[in-house]
């Protein structure tokens, strides 16, 4: 056995054991047929291909072949929400407090947040021009800049958006990393249209309501409204797709529950502190709710997968998935 074959076999561990036994020799044989003479290591592209293939087969074995399409759908909706919010926050950033208000500002802007919001708006432009790898890179940059606002504000002493604004943005960004490689041209431009619409709506609001600061009532109303809109869209889409026996909407809803929970932090924390009517949860209630959402939300997906797996046929691994012959 050559070193190359041994390395391909090692990468093949990404596949479920039963599938590997039934199809491993065929897959590795094809890779070796394609390899140029003298090659000793699988290319990064081959490694990625095997890892993706292995993940797909594991999802099939778990009875969740719709999960990958669900991740892509969730990513598109999360990106749409994140860029729309960035547009609204950009408008807010352009409305700092007048000098005699004695409210700290970051020069002509409300806070340092403008830097991150511009990165999100640029990500939407990149997505329209070149979806896939470049769009995902732009999202990574936007997420990093959003996270960097916290240390940057601490170092410079300048104001930044509150954590209850940054946290859902980062959550949406992480989900958006699953953006698909290909999208129909009209869909590519949807985030730009959403940005324009959100910007116009925000600009139409009075600076007294939407300006000066991210605090009351700005974020407390904008974020829950975004949560409701996102949840409604994914549930409606999911119901429509389910009518065609397409389960991806359910997976997308499950994935989006975490960012939706982070967007709805104020009402959730308000309900949690026993004083829902006051709608003014304290920092401790907000922090405890955020921790609960971040801990519980991401566990729902593996839980659902485990339940699907339990319901999947127990003999599935013992069959060749292509020729359906039983393995001995």
């Amino acid at each position: 056995m050559s070193n190359l074959e041994r390395r391909y076999l090692r990468l093949l561990r990404a596949y479920p054991a039963g599938y590997r036994r039934a199809r491993g020799a065929e897959i590795v044989g094809t890779y070796l047929d394609l390899a140029v003479p003298g090659r000793r290591w699988p290319s990064p592209g081959d490694a990625g291909d095997l890892l993706r293939g292995g993940l797909r087969q594991r999802l099939r074995a778990a009875g969740a072949p719709d999960l990958m399409p669900g991740i892509r759908l969730a990513a598109v909706l999360a990106f749409l929400t994140a860029t729309s919010l960035a547009a609204a926050w950009s408008v807010l950033e352009l409305r700092p407090a007048p000098a005699d208000f004695d409210v700290p500002t970051a020069g002509p802007f409300v806070s340092l947040g403008i830097g991150a919001w511009i990165a999100w708006l640029l990500a939407a432009v990149v997505h329209a021009l070149s979806p896939g790898r470049w769009a995902r890179r732009a999202v990574v940059l936007a997420v990093l800049l959003t996270l960097a606002l916290v240390p940057a504000a601490a170092l410079t002493g300048l104001p930044r958006p509150p954590l209850f604004v940054l946290l859902p943005q980062v959550g949406l960004g992480l989900v958006a990393l699953g953006l698909p490689d290909r999208l129909p041209t009209p869909l590519r431009a949807v985030p730009l249209v959403a940005i324009g619409s959100a910007g116009l709506v925000a600009a139409d609001l009075s600076p007294a309501i939407f300006g000066v600061s991210y605090y009351v009532p700005t974020a407390g109303q904008v974020l829950p409204a975004a949560a409701v809109a996102l949840l409604a869209v994914v549930l409606l889409l999911g119901a429509g797709l389910a009518l065609r026996a397409d389960q991806r909407g359910g997976w997308a809803a499950l994935i989006l529950l975490t960012p939706v929970g982070l967007l709805a932090l104020h009402p959730l924390a308000g309900a949690g502190d026993g004083l829902p009517d006051t709608y003014n949860p304290g920092w401790a209630a907000l922090a405890a709710t955020a921790v609960a959402v971040v801990l519980v939300g991401p566990t729902l997906l593996p839980l659902a997968l485990a339940m699907r797996r339990r319901r999947a046929r127990p003999t599935e691994h013992a069959r060749c998935p292509t020729c359906d012959a039983r393995r001995t």
């Binding site: 199809r23 065929e26 897959i27 094809t30 890779y31 394609l34 592209g45 081959d46 291909d49 095997l50 993706r52 293939g53 292995g54 797909r56 087969q57 099939r60 998935p321 292509t322 020729c323 359906d324």
Partner: peptide, 15 residues
Amino acid sequence: LRPGTLYGALDRLVD
């Protein structure tokens, strides 16, 4: 097509 992608597609077509 890379083999991982090809065999995934073949599985779906056989199914």
